[in-house]
Nucleic acid binder design. Structure first.
Lengths: 254, 254
DNA sequence: TAGCTTTATGTATTCCTTACATATTCACTA
DNA sequence: TAGTGAATATGTAAGGAATACATAAAGCTA
């Protein structure tokens, strides 16, 4: 079978070129249709979904490797990318089960050690700029609603859960919206984003007041038409003020 | 030379028994004499100091390995231990320089790869319960004032800096004092701890008010005598309330 | 033009944060 | 034993932030 052969070659290349026993898993968050989304890959010839991931070249910084993997998957070069946890349990998942699900060839001749430690990164991307791209290991790459993920391969459900928890904590420190929204957005959109991440409803009057008080967004004259209702104003982040406030640590949000 | 022989054997054992290319570095914080301290080791027959660290057995969880390493260094079994960052730069330090400083034997026959990724943990310990213990690689193990660290081996100054930054952020989320102070402590002691970690002075009236408002400490009838001044009351953490508040996320501190 | 949907917005209350100064206690010593 | 010095304990007023809450306006559709 052609694909199996390819896999074998890939494994050989990884063993030769990459740091052994270490991997990277990326949780790529996007926001669309008032929902927080995660980018998942479907493995070739299966119905099994998992996170995009990869390996680290022998002389490559782990951060750079994560960036490279993300770029391959999303086509985006500049994005918010952050290491959030390293998963080092001795048994992270049932290897036999995975091997079977993915029809992996016999890997007993590999140099790869018995267990893999994985470094988790999460990325926040502007949904509208992403072109989800499957690779030669996978048939499909698409966004999934974070609340409705299927059962994932490896320990990837756990990894997503930890990433989400980290994102929630970070939200109270920095306006994550900057990275998840397109350049122009409406106040209700921003509010939905916060509501989705925090998983609770917010009062629109208080929310608007608070976000505007932070002093990092500005209202444009433009409005977005299109619905059978009052047109919302468009806003955008003021990058300078945003970064200044970040440095001064004035961005707590509760 | 006996020590070199020992080192060689140690390296061989590590290669055989441990996950290759991965290490753990621990930043152990203690509080004493109104200062935040870090536990450092002096390598045998040198004046070079570094963080306690070690390697992960092939079938050992990384968290467990960190715990094991800490226990060896401090004698404490139960402590607050948290992974805070994985250091994966491709060039973390000048290997030749280190090898020379520590008079390492020729390591070219080792299986160990060219670069090591290190997982950083920090621990908060009750200074009074620790028995700093050097191992066979080191001559001395002692506390250093966090503000007055010498130039450390490897990238350990950087690792301490990242740990400290993490600790500062965490302080606004949970009362770190619980892990760093002895069972009974005075309000001024608690205040010094916060001042040290936050690196700024706090108002004693407001501090006392705020800490007591959190509802997780209780004042004892006891006072601590001994100085030529009014005796301070002793307090202790109420573990149940502390954990309840942690779960409810009511412990922000700014 | 009536109706439906979503947006935009202000005020009163409570809570939290900050700023700030003095009286008390203990040990030491003269 | 009275006086001194050092650190502790404590309350109040003012300003700012968070919360709770309801209605009018705008755009589209029928």
């Amino acid at each position: 079978m052609n694909y199996k052969k390819q896999l074998e070659e890939y494994f050989n290349e990884v063993d030769a070129r990459c740091v052994l026993g270490l991997s990277i898993d990326c949780v790529i968050f996007g926001f669309y249709d008032n929902q927080l989304k995660v980018l998942l890959l479907r493995w070739k010839q299966t119905e099994e979904w998992g996170l995009p991931g990869g390996f680290i070249y022998k002389n490559e910084s782990v951060d750079v490797a994560a960036q490279r993997i993300l770029e391959e998957r999303t086509g985006i070069k500049e994005l918010f990318l952050q290491q959030f946890h390293t998963f080092g349990e001795d048994v992270r998942y049932n290897r036999q089960e995975i091997s079977q699900k993915l029809s992996w060839p016999d890997t007993s001749s590999r140099q790869w050690p018995d267990r893999t430690v994985s470094i988790g990164y999460f990325a926040l991307v502007d949904f509208s700029k992403v072109a989800p791209t499957a690779d030669f290991l996978t048939d499909e790459c698409r966004w999934w609603d974070v609340e409705k993920l299927p059962s994932l391969l490896f320990d990837h459900n756990h990894i997503v859960a930890v990433a989400l928890r980290t994102l929630r904590v970070q939200l109270s420190w920095q306006p994550v919206g900057y990275n998840l929204l397109p350049e122009k957005f409406t106040m209700p959109e921003l509010q939905r984003l916060y509501e989705t991440i925090l998983n609770r409803p917010l009062d629109p009057r208080n929310f608007s007041k608070k976000m505007r008080a932070l002093g990092i967004i500005e209202r444009l004259e433009e409005q977005r038409k299109g619905g059978a209702f009052k047109s919302p104003y468009l806003f955008r982040f003021n990058k300078e003020k945003y970064e200044k406030a970040l440095q001064e640590g004035n961005l707590a949000f509760s």
